Simulated assay, not measured.
Amino acid sequence: MSDTDPRRDAAIHRLKAKRDLRTNLVSYVVVNAFLVLIWAATGANFFWPIFIIGGWGFGLAMHAWTVYGQKPITEEDVTREMERRGGDVVE
């Protein structure tokens, strides 16, 4: 049995998730700004960075959703799921 407080573990997990999201956001801004500069320096024809901006932006939005949008799993959720599954055996 572990002596750690589950609330402390959950708080540490959330703080790490928020830090990871901030790192992802900074990388997104820096890399995409660089790509836009390359696009502008090479003639500024078809705006090809939109593919990276859009794809990565969608991933970043999903990352933000997991950090800020999803509610944490509670003991009530676990109990309700166990009751719903009944006698199923987990392998």
Results as ranks from 00 to 15, higher is better:
residue 1 M to R: 14
residue 60 L to I: 00
residue 35 L to T: 01
residue 52 I to P: 00
residue 70 Q to H: 03
residue 89 V to Q: 15
residue 22 R to I: 11
residue 74 T to K: 01
residue 72 P to F: 00
residue 16 K to L: 14
residue 40 A to H: 02
residue 71 K to T: 08
residue 73 I to S: 02
residue 82 M to S: 15
residue 42 T to H: 13
residue 88 D to S: 14
residue 14 R to G: 10
residue 74 T to W: 00
residue 2 S to I: 06
residue 47 F to A: 11
residue 66 T to A: 07
residue 73 I to P: 02
residue 50 I to H: 05
residue 85 R to K: 15
residue 59 G to M: 09
residue 29 V to Q: 04
residue 11 A to N: 09
residue 89 V to W: 10
residue 2 S to Y: 04
residue 91 E to M: 14
residue 21 L to N: 01
residue 71 K to N: 15
residue 88 D to E: 15
residue 16 K to W: 12
residue 55 G to K: 01
residue 24 N to W: 11
residue 75 E to V: 12
residue 22 R to K: 12
residue 47 F to G: 07
residue 17 A to R: 06
residue 9 D to H: 14
residue 43 G to N: 08
residue 44 A to Y: 01
residue 12 I to C: 09
residue 50 I to E: 06
residue 81 E to A: 15
residue 60 L to S: 03
residue 24 N to R: 15
residue 64 A to T: 10
residue 23 T to N: 15
residue 19 R to I: 12
residue 72 P to N: 10
residue 54 G to V: 09
residue 20 D to Y: 00
residue 55 G to Q: 04
residue 17 A to S: 09
residue 45 N to F: 14
residue 5 D to K: 01
residue 48 W to T: 09
residue 57 G to D: 02
residue 52 I to R: 07
residue 19 R to G: 11
residue 37 L to Y: 10
residue 17 A to H: 04
residue 18 K to P: 07
residue 43 G to F: 01
residue 18 K to S: 06
residue 73 I to M: 07
residue 8 R to W: 05
residue 7 R to H: 12
residue 3 D to L: 13
residue 29 V to M: 11
residue 89 V to K: 15
residue 31 V to S: 10
residue 30 V to P: 12
residue 20 D to M: 08
residue 57 G to L: 03
residue 37 L to K: 08
residue 57 G to W: 03
residue 79 T to Q: 12
residue 20 D to A: 11
residue 73 I to K: 07
residue 39 W to T: 06
residue 67 V to N: 04
residue 4 T to R: 05
residue 66 T to K: 04
residue 31 V to I: 05
residue 62 M to Q: 11
residue 6 P to W: 03
residue 72 P to G: 04
residue 86 G to L: 02
residue 69 G to Q: 02
residue 58 F to I: 09
residue 58 F to Y: 08
residue 69 G to F: 02
residue 58 F to L: 10
residue 26 V to W: 05
residue 85 R to P: 06
residue 86 G to V: 02
residue 4 T to Q: 05
residue 32 N to G: 05
residue 5 D to F: 02
residue 53 I to H: 01
residue 36 V to H: 07
residue 70 Q to V: 07
residue 5 D to T: 06
residue 6 P to F: 05
residue 36 V to C: 03
residue 19 R to E: 11
residue 51 F to G: 10
residue 88 D to P: 03
residue 13 H to I: 07
residue 50 I to S: 13
residue 31 V to M: 11
residue 40 A to I: 11
residue 45 N to V: 12
residue 20 D to N: 11
residue 39 W to C: 03
residue 9 D to G: 04
residue 8 R to G: 13
residue 56 W to Q: 11
residue 89 V to T: 15
residue 22 R to W: 13
residue 79 T to A: 13
residue 4 T to E: 13
residue 87 G to T: 15
residue 25 L to C: 12
residue 48 W to K: 13
residue 58 F to P: 01
residue 74 T to P: 01
residue 58 F to A: 15
residue 15 L to W: 03
residue 32 N to M: 06
residue 40 A to Q: 08
residue 6 P to C: 07
residue 70 Q to G: 05
residue 41 A to C: 13
residue 77 D to T: 00
residue 19 R to S: 06
residue 85 R to I: 08
residue 44 A to L: 00
residue 5 D to A: 04
residue 91 E to D: 11
residue 37 L to S: 15
residue 65 W to D: 12
residue 56 W to Y: 03
residue 25 L to W: 07
residue 33 A to V: 10
residue 9 D to M: 14
residue 49 P to N: 07
residue 44 A to T: 00
residue 22 R to P: 05
residue 62 M to Y: 06
residue 56 W to G: 00
